[in-house]
């Protein structure tokens, strides 16, 4: 004898639930009456209290800020700085160095000009 999976599923889905005795609900309700009524353990949020606390904090912060501004001394002078920089520029900035610097600049400018002209040529084509 064989039972297929589908047949078994159909049988299981078609099963009826058992029925307790007629006095079942009444018996429970009688027991329940003797119990302390349940109360939600979720804390009720009173927004008035939250807004009140927020207002106290805001007032305190603004008060302190105003007090600080009123007592502040805005006369402020920049501190004097005396930097002792002693670089011998004559030794670094020689005429050869300047010429080399200008030559490199010229080469970079020529490379840029070349790439610019090539780009224009391709755009036209």
């Amino acid at each position: 004898m064989k039972i297929t999976d589908d047949e078994l599923t159909q049988l299981l889905k078609g099963m009826e639930l058992e029925e307790p005795s007629m006095s079942f609900t009444r018996n429970i309700m009688e027991q329940v009456k003797l119990e302390i009524p349940p109360v939600s353990l979720k804390t009720k949020v009173d927004y008035k209290v939250i807004y009140g606390i927020a207002a106290v904090f805001l007032t305190a912060i603004i008060g302190i800020f105003i007090y600080a501004l009123a007592n502040a001394d805005f006369n402020y002078a920049l501190p004097k700085m005396d930097l002792q920089v002693n670089i011998q520029t004559e030794k670094i900035l020689t005429s050869t160095a300047l010429k080399a610097f200008l030559f490199v600049d010229l080469v970079i400018a020529l490379i840029y000009l070349d790439s610019f002209l090539r780009r224009k040529k391709t755009e036209k084509a």
Binding site: L17, E18, E19, P20, T25, I28, M29, V32, P37, P38
Partner: peptide
């Protein structure tokens, strides 16, 4: 409703689930 104090509403909740709870206990 039950949490607000209407404990009789629990009877309805029991009626709804009693058959399956009983079957499971069986």
């Amino acid at each position: 409703q039950i949490l607000e104090g209407n404990t009789t509403a629990y009877a309805e909740l029991v009626k709804r689930h009693q058959r399956f709870v009983f079957t499971l206990a069986l």
